[in-house]
Design a protein around this nucleic acid. Structure first.
Lengths: 192, 192
DNA sequence: ACTTGGTTAGTGAGCACTAACAAAGATAAT
DNA sequence: ATTATCTTTGTTAGTGCTCACTAACCAAGT
């Protein structure tokens, strides 16, 4: 799909955004960081928007394993645990992701980009919602709380954790802190 | 503190950011929207950064009532309910806030701004953490879950709700949806 | 000979911001 | 009471800078 040079451009773009925000992603900086000239970029992408689109596609590809692992567990609490921990694992292994993903608002002026990003986010949320609903049906999760609220609690606290981790310059171990949060969430939502 | 013209500039800046993101906040657009010339802006603020600082100060002032109302309740569950609903009420009354606040990452390259913003966010979080801790001591909240997790669950789900509201072009009623979320959160964290 | 992937030099557009000036109201001197 | 000066708040015109992107050329591999 992407040539080696294209991948290098995408990865360097992510690095630049993570370092100093999306304002830092200029064609000049990008070319300089890679060690080629600015016009050389345009041999691999027709314009800057295409580079940003490729960045999001890159995320989708990297995030896929988090979804693949889910079907391996039967119990819905285990599925939710996998959902949380696998997501955090991937983000932990690709620290630059966090900074870019949670600056989604930066894409506000580019309709295409925000649509692509929302689609990706909704994919996660819908999957989790199905898991929660089936968990309630099987009486593994408490049913006195709406599935929507449970999903919001899980995704919301996950995102907040990642934001705090990212804002703190990754000062704490995301996976360990994530495990603790996950255990606590499980206690909150398990059927009594 | 701020003159009338300064307030007008700040409010128009918020409007522009809310409409099309922070990239839309240029001195040209700002002046045009107000109906004055660009250099006239510089009679009221020394530069653009000062305008952005004033935007954050404006938020702090508007958010203050949410904190003032908290001391009126004794029960910690009621305090948490106030915390959530008062915050959502203010955001609901100032829809542009959401778009700006949650694009905090946009300020990434301006150290001063991000510090000011974080300070404001931490103020909320610390207050909530104290409420949760005292609630656990008084056995009003369950103690098998760490206070940090409870705070993350509350703030995280609140922020997610606001983000979803903002991204959906305010299609649902934030206060009503907030009440439902709040009731569910209370069920999750109340002592058994 | 053609394709691929690079180069140098430069374009127009938009950015935050400034220099210089003008008009009106407030303040003060005559 | 009138005149002179100062302050405030606006204007037009323009600055230097950075941006994404392009024209034209070139070297190496197929």
């Amino acid at each position: 799909m992407f040539s080696e040079r294209q991948q290098q451009i995408v990865e360097t773009a992510i690095k630049l955004i993570a370092e100093k925000g999306i304002q830092n992603l200029t064609t000049k900086n990008l070319a300089k960081e890679i060690g080629i000239s600015e016009p050389a970029l345009y041999r691999h992408f027709s314009n800057k928007l295409e580079i940003l689109k490729a960045v999001i596609t890159h995320f989708q590809i990297k995030m896929q394993p988090a979804f693949d692992k889910l079907n391996k567990s039967v119990n819905s609490l285990n599925k939710i645990e996998s959902f949380i921990l696998e997501h955090l694992k991937i983000i932990s292994l690709n620290p630059n992701f966090a900074k870019v993903i949670f600056s989604e608002a930066n894409f506000q002026n580019e309709e295409n980009l925000i649509l692509k990003m929302n689609k990706m986010m909704n994919q996660s949320r819908n999957l989790l919602e199905k898991i929660v609903q089936s968990g309630q049906k099987k009486n593994e999760l408490r049913t006195d709380v709406s599935p929507l609220s449970i999903v919001r609690v899980i995704i919301g606290s996950m995102r907040l954790l990642v934001t705090q981790w990212s804002m703190s310059s990754m000062i704490f171990n995301l996976e360990n802190e994530g495990k603790e949060l996950c255990e606590d969430i499980k206690k909150l939502i398990v059927a009594k």
